[in-house]
Design a protein around this nucleic acid. Structure first.
Lengths: 141, 141
DNA sequence: ATTTAAAATTGTAATGATTACAATTTTATT
DNA sequence: AATAAAATTGTAATCATTACAATTTTAAAT
């Protein structure tokens, strides 16, 4: 079993949220699809296996998980939301050529600034955009 | 005249983009409304003065300005895009209680990482979310 | 095992931001 | 004044997300 799957299901139990079939499948999908999937991608992924799955259920589940801090919401794009099962501090890089989103390590926990003293910081996100290595190399073809 | 207004109009001239009445008004709106307005807020702001202004024109103008790097796109919210006339490196803090977006100083060049060597970084965004000082104080009423 | 109430899920319709695009207007140039 | 390019407008289309009522599933109680 995927370690994050175990971790999240434990947390759900602790919060008395039922480990329904749908929720577990959506969670599994997030664990093995680390490409920061959108709701639509999750839907397409699971549709073969669960033809009756509704998008509303996916939205509901993701909201539940996000409220408990078990997944991260990524607003790197203007039009759609992406979801990330990795909740530890890290940054995102979006390639504007191929559309891929890469993770990179960065510890934002200790970033502080006087301007925000007195503010309660609950979420920290660092987003870069540009062109990834592969696309840069292909450009020269 | 607002210094940023001068700066942006110069750049537009340099790129042979006409300083039309609509564009200048939208730009002016961005210069004096530093609350990171949405398209709709710009529309409402200007509607009294220019009743025939179309939202499409606002979208077009903002796209033009963004393409030239003269404004910044803020995707801190999931549903709508905000725009920022300040293009110098800084972070954004969104209060989840009152909805305000605050700027704070931070040099994002500082967050370089070996993992992205070979990547071309064109845009850097740091977004925090939480509760602002004022809302924290009001909570105790 | 049956009953019952709460929770979860579904499907459809509504919302709201953004885009596409054709028609019209404005502008700069000849 | 004529002309072509650029800018603007308004309407309709698109698409992600939400609202919500109806249905199904689940867990607990009898």
């Amino acid at each position: 079993m995927h370690p994050r799957y175990a971790l999240v299901t434990n947390q759900l139990k602790k919060h008395q949220i039922r480990l329904s079939d749908r929720r577990l499948k959506i969670l599994e999908c997030l664990c093995y699809n680390l490409e920061h999937p959108t709701v639509d991608q999750i839907y397409v992924n699971l549709h073969k296996e669960i033809p009756t799955l509704s998008k509303t259920t996916i939205y509901n589940t993701l909201h539940t998980l996000a409220e408990l801090g078990l997944i991260r919401i990524i607003n790197i794009e203007d039009n759609k939301t992406r979801y990330d099962i990795i909740t530890e501090s890290h940054g995102h890089f979006k390639c504007q050529t191929c559309g891929s989103i890469f993770n990179f390590e960065v510890d934002l926990k200790f970033f502080a600034t006087d301007e925000l003293s007195g503010f309660k910081i609950m979420e920290r996100n660092l987003y870069f955009k540009g062109i990834c290595q592969e696309c840069l190399l292909n450009k020269n073809d």
